[in-house]
Each structure stands twice: as structure tokens, then as C-alpha cells.
Write a protein that binds this DNA or RNA. Structure first.
Lengths: 216, 216
DNA sequence: CTTGAAACCTAACGACCGTTAAGTAGGTAT
DNA sequence: ATACCTACTTAACGGTCGTTAGGTTTCAAG
């Protein structure tokens, strides 16, 4: 149940405002383009203050991601344990992720832009590790669904990748548009799960058989 | 059939080597992190040579994207016109895109990383415009499918977004891993279209009904 | 009243960035 | 011979970046 190594959440008020300003600017312009100068200016402090709380820009970013990820991860695991059945769980995951992202669109903007964007040395591996935790939850849910014959058509990894592609890219795209709260709705979440489960074709059902996912 | 304004392809040998080195480095490190110094160094020329052929780094990037996009776009439209039926066309699009990306993985790495990554002023709007052309092809194919009752469950825009999420993110993820040619296979392409059309659920079919896509 | 740690400040550091001014070698047209 | 164009060169320009050395305020503990 531990996510990565535990990171203390911000205690000091200045530190929290610093992380919040960093969240805003990293989400808006990306890790590289958002400078520490802008971040400290938005916070209303001087540069050494930032380096008093964080050892580097990279450290600031990682602590920020950790902070928000832990929050999302806790909600996600609770969602899964509170729900029974594969289809219901997938619906709950999609709904919960949409709701979480709609609450503060800066978070998905930051996370997915960084994860799907160009590789940043020292950051990319970290993002991959963080994303893997989320992915494994989905994969376990789908594995249970395969075991319980609720679904079929491929291995858990391949199917999870499809599910996450649909979920994450919808969030990434829609969270960047205005009024994401109007877009990341429960109805859309449910419909996307329906498409994942039943498809959009009206013809008779063809047997789906994904090739196994080749790791490495 | 015109894509954007026409851009002359590279004629000079030096210019082509410049664009090729730019493709490699932009794909590897992203637009911001790849410096003109690295690009000219990889090409084996001095900096003013780059500015002799391109008016700026941004111009270099856009010309590069244009060049490769036009190539892909031509193949894509040919693929669609050569194929009949919505499902077959979707299969052809997915197969063709996979094949194109497997041929030179630098291209999808560059395109999708830039498009899905953080917003870059002066580049983002351009990428959106380029991506829209691809999207509209898919949307037209799906609109035809809806009109011909080959599929149902939502408007063409929403369904196209789902299809593109699956296709593009699989390319984006798999093209970044080693040996993308072993991953972006015909079999996977076909299976992803199957999932799009028929889903992965083994239970009885539920009616899918996506909420309309809210533009703006 | 002193000590010392926490929380900040001013002012700079060196490195890298995209870009360009100014000059030159080599070929071609007049 | 001269003028001109293409394809380059050397050598800098001003700017922004992340980071830090070193000093100051605040305030609670001894």
C-alpha cells in the first residue's frame, strides 16, 4: 500500500504556497519552461527561500508530484476496495479519476503533460514509476475480470493499456480545454467504460484477440 | 486536399542532413531541450548555416513537422480512398499509421510528444492544426459509419476522439520503447480496432450512448 | 542578556541559450 | 575584369537559466 518512499507533506504556509504556485506554473508551461524565478515571484518570496525548502528545482517538482499523486492514489485504492465486480470497478475508477481531475485540472495537466511529453532526464523515470502504480491497480482489476470471465480478448497488460489510453488521454485532452468540469462528467466516464466493454460497432460481434504484450 | 500552406521540401544536401539531425534530436529530447548547437554539431556545420536555411529554430521545427506530416497525410488519404466500408477503413488507418510510425519511430516520437506534452508558444497552435487534419479524416470515416448504421453510440467527434486516443497513445507509448517495429504490428492494429468496435466485455451487450461532444 | 536556529534577504556566479554582424571562398553571368 | 550570388566562416551579442555565498531579521530557549 506504500506508494513510493513517503514524503512529508508541506507543513509551513510559505512552503505550501510555493508548491501551489509551482503546480500552477508547471501545469501551465511544463517543467522546463516554468522557471524558479516565476515560481518564487508568484509566491511572493525570493529565490533562496525556495532553496531553503527544496534542494533543487527537480526536488520541488518531485515533491509536488508525490504530494498530489499520494492523494489520488489513496482515493483510487479506496474506490477499488469499496466496489465489487470488474465492470463496476472500472466504472468507479473512470468516474473517480474524472472527478479528481475536474476538481483541480492543474494536477492532470501537470502529470499527463509531463508523462506523455518529451523525456526529461531525472524526471521521466520518476514519472514512469508513479504512473506504474496507477496502472497496476487497473491491471489487477482487469486481471480479476479475466479470471472471473467478465471479460476476454487479451492479457491484462494489453487491456489495461487500452483502458488507460482512453481514460488518460481523455483527461489530458479535456483538462486542457476551458471548463474541464463540464467535460469530465460522470456520463462521459460511464460511456467510455461502455465503449471499452462493448465497443461502438452495431454489426454482430467479432471475436477480439489481442496479441500478448511484449515487455522489455 | 491541400494540407497547410505548401512548404518546399529540402533540396540541398546540407539542408536535408540538417532536418534529419533536427528530427533525431527533437524526437529524443523535445523541442526546448534540443539546442541548435547540438543540431548543427550533429550535422557537422556551423550555426549560421542553420540560419542560412531556416529563419529560426521555430521555423526549422515547423518545416520538419510539415515535411513528415505531408508524407503521412498523403499515405493516409490514399489509404482511405482505396478502402470501402467504415470498419475496413478504420483497420486500414490503424495499420497504415502503425506501419508508417514503425518505419521511422522518430516521427511519432516527435509529433506526439510535442502535441501531448506541455504547451510551447508558437508551436502548440501549429501542432493542433496539423493534428486536426488527421483527426478530420478519422471523423469523416466514422461519420460515414454512423450514417451507414455500421456503428452507433455517439456523435462522430466523440467516437473519433476515442479511436484516436487508442491509436495515438499506443503509438506514443510503444514508439518510445525499444524495437517499436516488433510492437506496432498489424495484429495489434487489427485487435485495437476490434476492441473499438466490439469491446472486451464477455457479458451481454449494453447499449452505449456517449454524451454529445461540447466544442469550445 | 546571550545564544542559536529558523526564515528570510541582496547580489552575484558561471553556464547555456537563440541569434547575428561581418567577412570570405568559389563559381557564374555580364 | 567586375559584379553578383550561393554557401559558408569566426567571433561575438544580450538574455535567461538554476544555483549559491554571505549577510540580516525574528524569536524562542538557556
Amino acid at each position: 500500500m506504500t506508494t513510493l518512499e513517503t514524503v512529508r507533506p508541506p507543513t509551513n504556509d510559505t512552503e505550501e504556497r510555493l508548491l501551489d504556485a509551482a503546480l500552477t506554473l508547471f501545469a501551465e508551461k511544463g517543467y522546463e519552461a516554468a522557471s524558479v524565478r516565476e515560481i518564487i515571484e508568484a509566491t511572493g518570496v525570493t529565490r533562496p527561500v525556495l532553496y531553503y525548502y527544496c534542494s533543487s528545482k527537480e526536488d520541488l517538482f518531485k515533491r509536488l508530484v508525490h504530494w498530489k499523486h499520494d492523494e489520488a492514489y489513496r482515493e483510487l485504492t479506496k474506490t477499488v476496495t469499496d466496489t465489487k465486480g470488474c465492470a463496476n470497478r472500472l466504472r468507479a475508477i473512470m468516474r473517480g479519476s474524472f472527478a479528481f481531475c475536474a476538481t483541480d485540472p492543474r494536477v492532470p495537466r501537470l502529470m499527463f503533460q509531463t508523462h506523455f511529453g518529451p523525456t526529461i532526464p531525472g524526471i521521466a523515470e520518476f514519472m514512469t514509476e508513479v504512473a506504474k502504480l496507477r496502472f497496476l491497480i487497473v491491471q489487477q482489476v482487469i486481471q480479476d475480470g479475466l479470471d472471473g470471465k467478465e471479460m476476454s480478448g487479451g492479457d491484462a497488460a494489453s487491456l489495461s493499456l487500452i483502458f488507460c489510453c482512453i481514460m488518460d488521454q481523455h483527461i489530458n485532452v479535456l483538462a486542457r480545454l476551458p471548463k474541464p468540469k463540464k467535460r469530465l462528467t460522470i456520463e462521459l466516464a460511464d460511456s467510455l467504460v461502455d465503449v471499452f466493454l462493448y465497443g461502438v460497432g452495431s454489426g454482430k460481434r467479432a471475436p477480439v484477440s489481442l496479441p500478448p504484450f511484449a515487455a522489455g
